[in-house]
């Protein structure tokens, strides 16, 4: 096995720092710790970690501006930790370039699953979308623009198709309303959250067995949507 992947943890609370480090080291990652944003930024520049775990409630700087600066020179995935009531902060962090979030209190298994998913995504080849995406009973042929369920073609409108392909091409990844609107409708529509809700509703009607209890297009309340294959 090659050298362990390094993870930089920027968190001001010593207890959380401790248990997260223990959990990550137990999985064989190399963990570096920082308790302030400025220390974190310096560490990130020297270590070049494979993943950054960032607490949104740091004493010296607000998370959003940290992420914006970090994104100017690094594409390392960022997992943000936030308190439950900070929905707006989460959305801002994700819009600024964070890749995923965890709300406190979180469990170790949840944390490890997110870390694994982010690192795996990072190792994937730079191909944006595979020509064929498969999940559940569905198969999307991105070249012929055809979606089938158990071999039978599924009728989708242009927008529904674009939304589904974008979500399915990024499994497990959370997108804010703004990001999805930008990707599917374009920059003029980023404030029209209503469009998105309507089309997610339509899409769930067509692909979910029970639209009230979706299994593929999951709602992240107050934040956005996440696709689960």
């Amino acid at each position: 096995m090659n050298t362990p992947e390094s993870i930089l943890l920027v968190e001001d609370d010593p207890q959380i720092r401790e248990f997260v480090s223990i959990a990550l080291e137990g999985e064989g990652y190399e963990v570096h710790e920082a308790c302030t944003a400025s220390h974190g930024a310096a560490q990130a520049a020297s270590i070049r970690p494979a993943l950054l775990i960032l607490d949104l409630g740091l004493p010296d700087r607000d998370g959003q501006s940290f992420i914006q600066d970090f994104r100017t020179w690094s594409s390392t995935p960022i997992l943000v930790l936030s308190a439950r009531t900070q929905e707006n902060e989460k959305v801002k962090a994700l819009d600024a370039g964070a890749d995923d979030f965890l709300s406190k209190p979180f469990g170790v298994s949840e944390l490890l699953a997110r870390v694994r998913a982010l690192l795996r995504r990072r190792q994937q080849p730079a191909l944006d979308t595979a020509p064929i995406i498969q999940f559940g009973d569905f198969r999307i042929d991105c070249v012929r623009r055809i979606v089938t369920r158990r071999g039978k073609p599924l009728h989708l409108t242009q927008i529904e198709y674009r939304l589904l392909v974008f979500l399915a091409a990024n499994p497990g990844r959370v997108f804010t309303h703004r990001q999805l609107l930008f990707q599917v409708w374009g920059s003029h529509a980023v404030e029209n959250h209503q469009y998105l809700r309507v089309y997610v509703g339509h899409l769930r009607q067509k692909i979910e067995a029970n639209p009230a209890q979706p299994e593929h297009i999951l709602t992240e309340i107050g934040v956005g949507y996440r696709f689960q294959p």
Binding site: H193, G201, Q213, L218, T219
Partner: peptide
């Protein structure tokens, strides 16, 4: 309040999850 028009299923789906 950050109100928006959305179906009731949206929030029910989340709490069921």
């Amino acid at each position: 309040l950050n109100k928006a028009w959305q179906p009731a299923e949206e929030v029910i789906g989340v709490i069921l999850q």
